[in-house]
Amino acid sequence: APRKVEMRRDPVLGFGFVAGSEKPVVVRSVTPGGPSEGKLIPGDQIVMINDEPVSAAPRERVIDLVRSCKESILLTVIQP
Results as ranks from 00 to 15, higher is better:
residue 61 R to I: 08
residue 31 T to W: 06
residue 43 G to V: 00
residue 78 I to D: 13
residue 54 V to D: 00
residue 33 G to D: 13
residue 54 V to L: 05
residue 37 E to D: 12
residue 1 A to M: 05
residue 33 G to M: 07
residue 11 P to R: 07
residue 54 V to N: 00
residue 58 P to N: 11
residue 66 V to Y: 04
residue 17 F to M: 04
residue 68 S to R: 11
residue 44 D to A: 05
residue 31 T to G: 05
residue 64 D to L: 03
residue 75 L to N: 02
residue 3 R to C: 00
residue 68 S to E: 14
residue 9 R to H: 05
residue 67 R to E: 14
residue 25 V to S: 14
residue 79 Q to S: 15
residue 32 P to V: 11
residue 17 F to I: 04
residue 20 G to W: 08
residue 43 G to C: 05
residue 50 N to Q: 08
residue 29 S to R: 10
residue 13 L to V: 14
residue 45 Q to P: 00
residue 12 V to D: 14
residue 74 L to W: 13
residue 39 K to I: 14
residue 47 V to D: 09
residue 15 F to C: 02
residue 28 R to Y: 07
residue 2 P to V: 11
residue 75 L to S: 03
residue 7 M to R: 00
residue 34 G to I: 00
residue 76 T to K: 12
residue 10 D to G: 03
residue 63 I to F: 15
residue 57 A to G: 05
residue 19 A to C: 14
residue 78 I to E: 15
residue 37 E to A: 12
residue 28 R to E: 15
residue 52 E to D: 09
residue 35 P to D: 02
residue 65 L to I: 11
residue 42 P to Q: 11
residue 54 V to S: 02
residue 14 G to A: 05
residue 69 C to H: 10
residue 26 V to N: 07
residue 23 K to I: 09
residue 70 K to A: 08
residue 21 S to Y: 10
residue 60 E to V: 07
residue 73 I to W: 00
residue 10 D to S: 08
residue 54 V to C: 12
residue 74 L to M: 15
residue 46 I to T: 08
residue 23 K to D: 11
residue 44 D to T: 03
residue 80 P to E: 06
residue 40 L to V: 06
residue 75 L to I: 08
residue 5 V to L: 07
residue 40 L to R: 00
residue 51 D to A: 09
residue 22 E to G: 12
residue 76 T to P: 02
residue 41 I to L: 15
residue 31 T to D: 10
residue 45 Q to Y: 08
residue 12 V to S: 14
residue 22 E to Y: 13
residue 43 G to E: 06
residue 35 P to E: 04
residue 48 M to P: 01
residue 8 R to D: 15
residue 60 E to S: 14
residue 25 V to N: 05
residue 11 P to E: 08
residue 7 M to I: 15
residue 13 L to S: 13
residue 70 K to C: 08
residue 38 G to N: 09
residue 5 V to H: 04
residue 22 E to L: 04
residue 58 P to E: 10
residue 72 S to I: 06
residue 45 Q to F: 05
residue 46 I to S: 15
residue 39 K to H: 12
residue 42 P to R: 07
residue 39 K to G: 05
residue 18 V to C: 11
residue 80 P to W: 04
residue 42 P to A: 12
residue 8 R to N: 09
residue 79 Q to E: 13
residue 5 V to S: 02
residue 33 G to A: 10
residue 30 V to L: 08
residue 75 L to A: 04
residue 58 P to G: 13
residue 15 F to N: 01
residue 29 S to F: 06
residue 9 R to G: 04
residue 64 D to K: 10
residue 55 S to C: 06
residue 41 I to F: 15
residue 32 P to Y: 07
residue 37 E to K: 06
residue 53 P to E: 14
residue 25 V to G: 03
residue 34 G to H: 03
residue 72 S to A: 09
residue 35 P to I: 02
residue 39 K to D: 03
residue 46 I to C: 07
residue 49 I to Y: 01
residue 36 S to A: 15
residue 66 V to E: 03
residue 43 G to T: 03
residue 50 N to H: 08
residue 74 L to G: 15
residue 60 E to Y: 06
residue 5 V to Q: 03
residue 60 E to T: 12
residue 62 V to G: 00
residue 69 C to D: 04
residue 77 V to S: 02
residue 51 D to V: 04
residue 78 I to F: 11
residue 18 V to G: 08
residue 60 E to H: 12
residue 5 V to W: 04
residue 37 E to S: 11
residue 59 R to A: 12
residue 48 M to L: 09
residue 74 L to F: 15
residue 59 R to M: 11
residue 78 I to S: 15
residue 12 V to N: 15
residue 15 F to R: 01
residue 23 K to C: 12
residue 25 V to R: 04
residue 20 G to V: 11
residue 59 R to F: 14
residue 70 K to T: 08
residue 17 F to C: 02
residue 65 L to A: 10
residue 33 G to N: 09
residue 71 E to F: 06
residue 76 T to W: 06
residue 73 I to P: 03
residue 11 P to D: 10
residue 57 A to P: 01
residue 18 V to F: 05
residue 80 P to T: 10
residue 31 T to Q: 12
residue 76 T to G: 13
residue 10 D to P: 00
residue 68 S to A: 12
residue 79 Q to Y: 09
residue 1 A to V: 05
residue 48 M to Q: 14
residue 45 Q to D: 03
residue 9 R to I: 07
residue 77 V to Y: 01
residue 38 G to K: 08
residue 39 K to P: 02
residue 50 N to Y: 06
residue 70 K to G: 08
residue 38 G to Q: 08
residue 52 E to K: 10
residue 79 Q to W: 05
residue 64 D to G: 12
residue 44 D to F: 00
residue 77 V to R: 02
residue 70 K to N: 09
residue 25 V to D: 03
residue 39 K to S: 08
residue 3 R to V: 06
residue 47 V to T: 13
residue 71 E to V: 06
residue 43 G to R: 05
residue 41 I to C: 13
residue 21 S to P: 06
residue 70 K to R: 09
residue 28 R to D: 12
residue 53 P to L: 14
residue 9 R to Q: 04
residue 23 K to P: 04
residue 66 V to R: 01
residue 30 V to C: 08
residue 53 P to Y: 09
residue 33 G to S: 09
residue 49 I to M: 03
residue 28 R to K: 14
residue 77 V to A: 05
residue 30 V to H: 00
residue 16 G to P: 00
residue 24 P to Q: 03
residue 45 Q to V: 07
residue 25 V to Q: 04
residue 54 V to P: 00
residue 29 S to M: 09
residue 22 E to R: 06
residue 55 S to Y: 04
residue 19 A to V: 14
residue 67 R to Q: 14
residue 18 V to K: 08
residue 42 P to N: 10
residue 48 M to S: 14
residue 71 E to H: 09
residue 68 S to N: 13
residue 7 M to N: 00
residue 48 M to W: 07
residue 62 V to H: 02
residue 71 E to A: 08
residue 49 I to N: 01
residue 19 A to F: 13
residue 40 L to N: 00
residue 59 R to V: 11
residue 41 I to H: 15
residue 24 P to N: 04
residue 21 S to K: 13
residue 47 V to G: 03
residue 78 I to N: 11
residue 34 G to N: 00
residue 49 I to Q: 00
residue 33 G to R: 08
residue 19 A to K: 03
residue 59 R to Y: 15
residue 43 G to F: 05
residue 69 C to K: 09
residue 71 E to K: 14
residue 53 P to A: 12
residue 77 V to I: 08
residue 33 G to L: 08
residue 6 E to S: 13
residue 11 P to Y: 04
residue 77 V to N: 02
residue 24 P to V: 02
residue 45 Q to G: 04
residue 14 G to E: 09
residue 47 V to E: 09
residue 53 P to V: 13
residue 8 R to C: 07
residue 47 V to C: 12
residue 29 S to N: 12
residue 20 G to L: 08
residue 71 E to M: 06
residue 18 V to A: 10
residue 12 V to Q: 14
residue 11 P to V: 05
residue 46 I to N: 02
residue 3 R to I: 08
residue 42 P to L: 08
residue 30 V to S: 02
residue 33 G to H: 08
residue 16 G to T: 00
residue 68 S to I: 05
residue 37 E to Q: 12
residue 20 G to P: 02
residue 35 P to R: 03
residue 78 I to H: 13
residue 28 R to I: 11
residue 74 L to D: 15
residue 25 V to E: 01
residue 16 G to F: 00
residue 26 V to I: 13
residue 26 V to Y: 07
residue 61 R to A: 13
residue 9 R to C: 06
residue 52 E to T: 12
residue 60 E to L: 07
residue 36 S to K: 00
residue 35 P to W: 00
residue 73 I to E: 03
